[in-house]
Amino acid sequence: MKKETVALHVAFVAATMLLPLILTSYGLKLTSEVLIIAMFVMSLGLIIGFAGLVSLGHAAFFGIGAYTVALISEHVDNTWLLLIAAVVTAGIVAFLSGLMFIRSSGAYFLMITLAFGQMLYAIAYKMEGVTGGADGKAVSESFNLGFGAIESRLAFYYVAAAAFLACYYLLRVFLSSPLGKGVRGIKENESRMTALGYNTHLYKLTVYSLSGMMAGFAGALYAYFNQYISPDLLHWMFSGQALIMVIVGGVGTLLGPAIGAGFFVILQNYISSYTERWPIIMGLLFVCLVLYGRGGVIHLASLVWSHLQSKRRTGREKSVLPKEGSGFESLKG
């Protein structure tokens, strides 16, 4: 890795860790939420941007993670066990449903995942005895990894930040591995991958399961964070919002969806404090972004970055063209 790239990553981690210094208590809570949602959206961005599987039912796995924690925490209080249970359950459901869904693609995949998500929503809604139905369930168990209960907003921020960074770097490693490259190859040209000897179904199933596990993990953290869960977490509206976040942030990048999540959640919070009609403003903003900012927020940001870079450079080398693959680009993954 280049020195510049290493420095950038150190700065990225440090910024995440030092952010609480400038945040208010409310800001801490909001940022924690952003980080958790960002993990979920990143998992969706993984299958959309790198495997070409556009799902409209990804909230199912987020919800499964959240419900697993909520339901089992009535009997077990070990946080580690609950987190693992959430990840494993989401992973198993993703694997089994993926076995059926992966055979379809494009609009068919979108529809079948939508139907699956809505089915889970209906189950959570109707099985009042177990899930609490429309009222949802309170999660009273505190988050405790063995170093004492984490109750303050600051402490939970660090939990979310550590989890987010871990997910981000795990995905980076995954995407640069032979398996990850294979997944990207399938998105590029599946028929050639088959001709080269790749079992493409197995690759897609693996990445879909991994994505489901990550969404489940984010859901589990969300249950702790929000201390309350409801069937809305499984609803297709939430899947759709996540899809918008991926597109607004930048499809085909790793950090893009996370930025999209931050953009969406913070904007929603900000605008809805002024007007009840916030969806109109959000909607108009997204229309503009899609029309003028192809590639999403991350693309715009990297354009600005390379513009600044080239300005800095012109003094020395007189090169005006923005150079791809430098600085900011490397974080996109």
Partner: peptide, 12 residues
């Protein structure tokens, strides 16, 4: 990589 035993590795 399609013909390598490590085509399915995901940690390196």
């Amino acid at each position: 990589a399609a013909c390598k035993p490590y085509r399915f590795h995901f940690f390196k």
